[in-house]
Design a protein around this nucleic acid. Sequence first.
DNA 1: CGTCCTCCTGTGGTCTAACCACACTCTAAA
DNA 2: TTTAGAGTGTGGTTAGACCACAGGAGGACG
Lengths: 230, 230
Amino acid sequence: MRTHQLVLHWIENELSAGRLAVGGRLPAERSLAEQLKVSRTSVREAIRVLEAMGVVRAGVGSGPEAGTVVISDPATALGSALRLHVATRHLPVADIVETRVLLESWAAAKAVPDAPVLDEAAALVEAMAAENLPVNDFLALDVRFHLALADAAGNAVVSAMMGSLRESIQGYAADLTANLPDWEATSCRLRTEHRDILAAIRAGEGGTAARLVASHIEGFYQEAGLAPDR
Amino acid sequence: MRTHQLVLHWIENELSAGRLAVGGRLPAERSLAEQLKVSRTSVREAIRVLEAMGVVRAGVGSGPEAGTVVISDPATALGSALRLHVATRHLPVADIVETRVLLESWAAAKAVPDAPVLDEAAALVEAMAAENLPVNDFLALDVRFHLALADAAGNAVVSAMMGSLRESIQGYAADLTANLPDWEATSCRLRTEHRDILAAIRAGEGGTAARLVASHIEGFYQEAGLAPDR
DNA sequence: CGTCCTCCTGTGGTCTAACCACACTCTAAA
DNA sequence: TTTAGAGTGTGGTTAGACCACAGGAGGACG
């Protein structure tokens, strides 16, 4: 077993045992190295891994924002991993779209109609109606809208998975908009569909919302044409 | 921007540009450090992160197995991340079960009846019928069976996500079996259900298979009782 | 007495230089 | 021809040093 993995296991044990919890702080790198009888380098490698997984956040200086503290941010963690794997071309974009449809239509069907995140989703819909909104800003708001819908179902794992798809989604969406014949018309249609989806969820018509979401996502993907590779 | 992130971005660019591909090798750590004008320490931190994400594999010595080569193993990558987040108690087990039902019933409905992985699934079912099989071995085979079903749908992202749930599933399953009144009876029932699921998929009855999978997973979870915490 | 400024301390971030274990490859001896 | 050994290049690990940063403790000053 490599040294940094020893550190990783130690930290995982502390988490499982409850001696470390979200909001808590890891011992300082130098203390931890001394305590585990390893070099500071190995401790740092382990912390880098945990940071990449969204389990800790490292901050310099002193005070409440400093030091290495335990957080819980599964989405961005899985996100960068997925983005890299898409870069290796071993995760086809079509599969990502299919997974989106699966997760989001389920979330739409299960969403509780009075979830607070739906207010946020509504605000995003309005923001997307702004005049002269750059395409990339529109897409960023669009992704946030869909993430809000996923959150409304109240399943942390599904939310994390949707969040992990975020960067990949925005990447392929930006590529696809270049193929659209008429962005104005498309964006207008997308806005209308967003409103319909939101209305269906608020009305408690989960089945309708799920169908609308599925056709919304697939419609955009097919209108822009399937990307040749990537 | 921190130094090791510079290295990460460089590698990600090489991947996106196609100059690095799965099976290819990264430059040696010392060369890369010199080339990017950073220390070997920073290069190593970046490589540790990529390793944790399942993007590269590092091997000592020389020859074809040595050096840092690009791989694509999204499942184990996301797996350890999820396991750690479950350890922080920010991902409830109930949500994992719910996500399993979602992913697996979709996969069962979409599985192609003559997928080669189904042969593997059938072999796993037979292996689970062995006499005096320890509980943990049974559970390990069970997880592999379910992963094979997920693979049969042919969606790499869904497969990766199911794979990432693997460790968490095995963890909670092992906890839950302790609550079962009669393991022999339960395992016998599980085996029968496995056979029924497989038969439905092979017969092309996706809808039936999806329903069977959902009740199979939820039945076990409810029979063993909901875990108090964790 | 209150305010401001400076120094001190502890944190993560980075770098250098050295050594180790490993696995292959080449060379020279048997 | 075979085989034992040295050589080479890989990642793995360590020690020690220095940096930038942010807060806290204390004194200097109004």
